[in-house]
Design a protein around this nucleic acid. Structure first.
Length: 869
RNA sequence: GCGGGCGUGGUGGAACUGGUAGACACAAGGGACUUAAAAUCCCUCGCCGCAUGGCGUACGGGUUCGAUUCCCGUCGCCCGCACCA
């Protein structure tokens, strides 16, 4: 056996079969051990896994296998985020049913994942497109409807003209659809919404409890929720023949600047603006112009502030006899606050731009510290920082904060139209989550529209509302809508002819609760409450940063909604969150400028310089920048090919080495080779140590000391690797394993007495256990070679003897004036006085002192000595 | 524009709460073994200098016995948000 190279192609499928047959990774819900739930974001079944998946699942698998070794009852499931548009596109292209395409993809991707040797409980596999999954989603939708968490309203929506569907705000990136990239249009549609905004305050506050989340993600969610405190304020209209409306309600976060108000602004979509436009052609044209610009040309022209003077005037609320003009302005949003503002040009940049354009007064009311009240004036930039209020009657001299309180009290006590003129209010940027999608391949919204009874939920006994199989995709839009019979149904209440809802749910709904379904994937109800509560929240969730807002915020909302409807007892779905970096690769271009895949390139190194040429034609190829692996730049490396040539363990090991997991990692040929060499080195070490055990060691005077040193090395590695895995610092765990391997190999080459050889064997066994979470197949082969019983996958994590972690001696560096000049080895814990005496006696130090007395000697126990001359 | 993060050898990166900067790996160079190659093993590897030594963690300052780490300023890169009143 020894002397042979390790052959992953043979070994890996063998161990996968062994684990499978032994049901090693099948998790029981009634296992009494402490539960630990580790989850990687489940994939969309596109058909092939990519290196990003390999990295993600390798990390999760390390955590899962480590926690198993630690004696936890580990839940590590896998499923498929299987609804979504690509299946429909494929259906159009290939004339297959989206389901057929999806399930074929699932099958091939599952085989790929299985070839990675992941410790996954495949008995819990779920696919969101399966009625056995989505029927529960429909059932919970009905529960949430009845709990008042769902609404249906007509609203302006983001319409993706390419995908022909509605997008949520979160799915619009820089004015373009997140999937299609097409400029988004505004349309008015009746939509289903989850009332996520009801939870805005709670979702915001609870972020503080998510201490195991990256700060970055929490900040992003905080900004997204966008809480702002302000005042709702009524402006009385000066009576006019143009309207019967008597007041305009605005929202402001700067009521302290009310004395500087010079206009009131309305959104082009404000009801008053709309009403005025019916008798005013110019205004109607202005509003239409605003709509035309809308979101489409957002970046181009948004700098330009434009307004339209309605001719109406409002009474200034604090300055007697003064009135202000009412403008319709293009930059005011209807769906934030009240859709109306008051403009204080001196202290708001947008208001200032409008004021300058139309010659409105600019009166400063906040005085910057140190500025002269008589001469302070606003130029082209509004003053938005702190200062004291002036030019403001009874507010003069107050700070901004004090003035806000004072003015809120003032308006709170006055009434307009029988209402308080001002009311403190908190606003959020977060809007309700629109979930209607005009698509076939999604979870049908279980609702029936009856002309007599209105909109009704489908009775639960009639669930699931299944997608019809016989659909065609020969015209754009919603195939459910086009289906000849599917939508016609009898009203469940009165029996008269009614119509099914043909919208399906946003696929983010599917992924908002899959982690819960994994806890009881075959239950007849959406969840089994006690089981879910035992597993949740997920201890460690791992995935891409691109889901920082969408998926993670929706899931946090959905968990709360499931709590309200009694399906779970927890608030937060994910206790620990880790966002891993991307996998990148060099790009290559031919002389003609076309991208060339790495498989067709040979890279040559000559000294410092690298050059590349095409593998068959020999033509030179330009080496380009390092980019995220993408089909468009052809810089992808196929995991299948890597597994076939180097084995899964090598791919996994490489993905975990070197780069910190939260950062991008560059896939390189050399790096893979290195990983593969290490695999062979470990195997050789194990084989050598096994054969050494058959020889009789000679006597050795240093035997006990060498054995102790080796023992310390091994124990230290075990403790260090454990710490690094728990902190998800896989690159450092890998470095420590390398160090241990070097140490063991040195002893193997040097030999030693019986105690040393015993320590060597023990160290090698520990090494095998340390690599087991990362290179599980190799570890099993080594474990067997070492003659250990059972599977290393079932072996408990090696015990660390705390005594082996401490040294009784330490080497202290000695600095002179902060520069390292010497060192001294002393007993651990030696007092400062004793160290000082020892140091001063040293030749090096005496020489440096040159007869002088040091000014000061700093001794940090067991750390460092600094002699100041 | 606003918010957040980062900047360490040829490269990826280590360095616990301020205490020997460059662990570990990749690349490179040299050597051993070999008929040869592959594989493997050993050595060198921040910069300058023959050397005692000096300089080095983007740059400029500061605090400290001591700074990659803390503070201020400058430059550069990356990410998120972007008319939210």
């Amino acid at each position: 056996m020894s002397g042979e190279r390790y052959n992953p192609r043979e070994s890996e499928p063998k161990w996968q079969k062994v684990w499978d047959e032994a049901r090693t990774f099948v998790t029981a819900n009634d296992d009494p051990r402490e539960p630990y739930y580790v989850l990687e974001m489940f994939p969309y079944p596109s058909g092939r896994i990519h290196m990003g998946h390999v990295r993600n699942y390798a990390m999760g698998d390390v955590v899962a296998r480590y926690q198993r070794a630690r004696g936890k009852n580990v839940l590590h499931p896998m499923g498929w985020d299987a609804f979504g548009l690509p299946a429909e596109n494929a259906a159009i292209e290939r004339k297959t049913h989206p389901g057929t395409w999806t399930y074929q993809n699932i099958e091939s991707m599952k085989a790929q994942l299985q070839s990675m040797g992941l410790s996954i409980d495949w008995t819990r596999e779920i696919a969101t497109c399966d009625p056995s999954y989505y029927q529960h989603q429909q059932s919970m939708f009905i529960d949430m409807m009845q709990a008042g968490l769902v609404t249906r309203k007509s609203s302006k929506v983001n319409w993706d003209p390419v995908d022909m569907t509605v997008l949520a705000n979160e799915q619009v990136i820089e004015g373009k659809g997140w999937r299609s990239g097409a400029p988004v249009e505004q349309r008015e549609l009746t939509q289903w919404f989850f009332k996520i905004s009801d939870f805005a305050e709670e979702l915001l506050e609870a972020l503080d409890t998510l201490t195991e989340w990256p700060e970055k993600v929490r900040t992003m969610q905080r900004n997204w929720i966008g809480r702002s405190e302000g005042l709702r304020l009524l402006f009385e209209l000066v009576p006019s023949a143009k309207t019967d409306t008597r007041s305009i309600e605005v929202f402001t976060t700067r009521p302290d600047t009310i004395f500087g108000a010079s206009f009131v602004g309305l959104s082009p979509d404000h009801p008053l603006a709309t009403a005025l436009a019916t008798n005013n052609v110019a205004l109607a044209e202005f509003i239409a112009e605003c709509h035309r610009h809308g979101t489409a040309t957002e970046t181009l022209e948004k700098a330009e502030k434009q307004g339209f003077d309605t001719g109406l005037r409002v009474k200034h609320p604090v300055i007697e006899a003064e009135t202000l003009p009412v403008y319709v302005a293009n930059f005011i949003l209807m769906d934030y606050g009240t859709g109306a503002i008051f403009g204080c040009p001196a202290h708001d940049q947008r208001d200032l731009e409008l004021a300058r354009k139309y010659g409105l007064p600019v009166k400063p009311v906040v005085l910057p510290p140190g500025a002269d009240p008589a001469s302070f004036a606003i130029g082209s930039e509004a003053y938005v920082d702190s200062g004291n209020i002036f030019n403001s009657g009874f507010l003069d001299g107050l700070s901004i904060g004090e003035a806000k309180t004072a003015i809120a009290d003032f308006f709170g006590a006055r009434t307009v139209d029988g209402r308080p003129q001002g009311q403190v209010e908190v606003n959020y940027r977060l809007r309700d989550w629109g979930i209607s999608r005009q698509r076939y391949w999604g979870c049908p919204i279980p609702v029936i529209h009856c002309e007599v009874c209105g909109t009704l939920p489908v009775p639960k006994k009639d669930l699931p509302v299944r997608l019809p199989e016989d659909v065609t995709f020969d015209r754009p839009g919603n195939a459910l809508e086009h289906h000849p019979t599917w939508k016609h149904v009898a009203c469940p209440q009165c029996g008269s002819p009614a119509r099914r809802e043909t919208d399906t749910m946003d696929t983010f709904v599917d992924s908002s609760w899959y982690y819960t379904r994994f806890t009881a994937p075959h239950a007849k109800t959406p969840t089994i409450r006690e089981v879910a509560d035992r597993w949740l929240p997920v201890d460690q969730y791992i995935g891409g940063i691109e889901h920082a807002i969408l998926h993670l915020l929706y899931s946090r909302f959905f968990t709360r909604a499931m709590k309200v409807t009694g399906h779970v007892g927890v608030d937060e779905p994910f206790k620990g969150l880790f966002t891993q970096g991307m996998v990148t690769h060099e790009t290559y271009r031919s002389a003609a400028g076309t991208w060339v895949p790495p498989t067709e390139v040979i890279v040559e190194t000559e000294g410092e310089s690298r050059s590349a040429r095409h593998i068959t034609s020999g033509e030179p190829v330009t080496i380009g920048s390092v980019e995220k692996m993408s089909k468009s730049k052809k810089n992808v490396v196929d995991p299948d090919e890597i597994v076939a040539s180097y084995g899964a363990d090598t791919a996994r090991w490489f993905m975990l080495s070197d780069s910190p997991p939260e950062r991008d990692v560059q896939w390189t040929e050399a790096g893979v080779e290195g990983a593969s060499r290490f695999q062979q080195r470990v195997w050789r070490l194990v084989c050598d140590v096994v054969s050494m055990a058959r020889t009789t060691p000679g006597a050795d005077s240093a035997d006990a000391a060498n054995a102790l040193a080796l023992g310390k090395l091994s124990h230290r590695a075990v403790a260090g690797v454990a710490q690094d895995i728990e902190g998800l610092r896989f690159n450092r765990a890998v470095a420590q394993i390398y160090e241990l391997t070097h140490g063991l190999a040195k002893v193997r080459d040097g030999g030693g007495g019986p105690q040393t050889l015993a320590a060597l064997r023990d160290g090698v066994c520990k090494l095998v256990q340390l690599i087991a979470p990362m290179m599980p197949h190799l570890a099993e082969s080594c474990w067997a070679e070492l003659g250990q019983s059972g599977l290393v996958a079932d072996a408990p994590w090696p015990e660390v003897d705390p005594k082996m972690l401490v040294d009784d001696e330490v080497t202290l560096p000695i600095q002179i004036n902060g520069k390292r000049r010497s060192e001294v080895t002393v007993a651990k814990g030696l007092s400062s006085g004793e160290v000082e005496a020892l140091v001063l006696a040293l030749d090096d130090i005496q020489k440096a002192l040159d007869g002088k007395t040091p000014k000061k000697i700093v001794v940090v126990q067991d750390r460092i000595v600094n002699v100041v001359i």
